[in-house]
Nucleic acid binder design. Sequence first.
DNA 1: CCTACAATCTCTAGCCACTAGAGCTTCAAG
DNA 2: CTTGAAGCTCTAGTGGCTAGAGATTGTAGG
Lengths: 135, 135
Amino acid sequence: MRISIGELARRTGVKVPTIRYYEGVGLLPTPARTEGRQRRFDADEVARLNFIRHSRELGFEVADIRELLTLSEQPERSCSEVDAIARRHVENIDRRIGRLVALRAELQRALDRCVRGTVEECRVIEVLGYGDDRV
Amino acid sequence: MRISIGELARRTGVKVPTIRYYEGVGLLPTPARTEGRQRRFDADEVARLNFIRHSRELGFEVADIRELLTLSEQPERSCSEVDAIARRHVENIDRRIGRLVALRAELQRALDRCVRGTVEECRVIEVLGYGDDRV
DNA sequence: CCTACAATCTCTAGCCACTAGAGCTTCAAG
DNA sequence: CTTGAAGCTCTAGTGGCTAGAGATTGTAGG
């Protein structure tokens, strides 16, 4: 196969510098090189990079992906660790959603109460100035 | 008043290095100094830092906060610009929530289908390997 | 007034996951 | 054999802090 980094980028939708970055942080193995030291990849690396890309799209961190890749290379093993990582991540997402929903509500409340007058009487500014917990 | 940076930190819940950082990026004005060059703050700065802290808690970026602070100093002005920044931010939050909800659904779907067997037959790994759009 | 020590000072570097750019070399088509 | 796109390495920048080194200052107790 031996495709170039540009071709790999085209096939996976991952940008060229990002591929090199993934290699640098150990998500992708050190690739084969031409005599002129250009990288050449094969089908394995396309699959691996697709895995990485989709994991990133789902919000997994690089450290998690490293672990998921290691686990995915041991097909005999129980998938309980994989599940644990994924469940941890779902909980993480839930926390972020919860937080964002709360922020949104507070902001919207301030916007709703705003009478569109001057800055002086602006509810948004007021809310920002006086936190919930303090003052 | 002339409180120290540590006292300001205690009163606002913003860490000392973060206060210095805010000064560096222009959110806080250059403060008064003692003879020995230690910072001294007054009530204005407590209020301003509370404003910054709460804005950050609501997810505004530093650039937005800079603008909000500038606007809040012009009380006569219409608050339409303030509202615009806040509405833009709400839309931003909505997009992030939407995205996270979608991610969560996809992950949960994979977890639900997982039969808790080996990595080989793991649905989570499978989903990660084959993106929705590609392959 | 002196000492001890907590607090403060400046400066640099690190975090995450990339992204951008400089300046050079290599590959492949014509 | 020439040309030019694509590749190479290396450094630095992004945002919003955080951590640490090593020096100085403020202040309370004696």
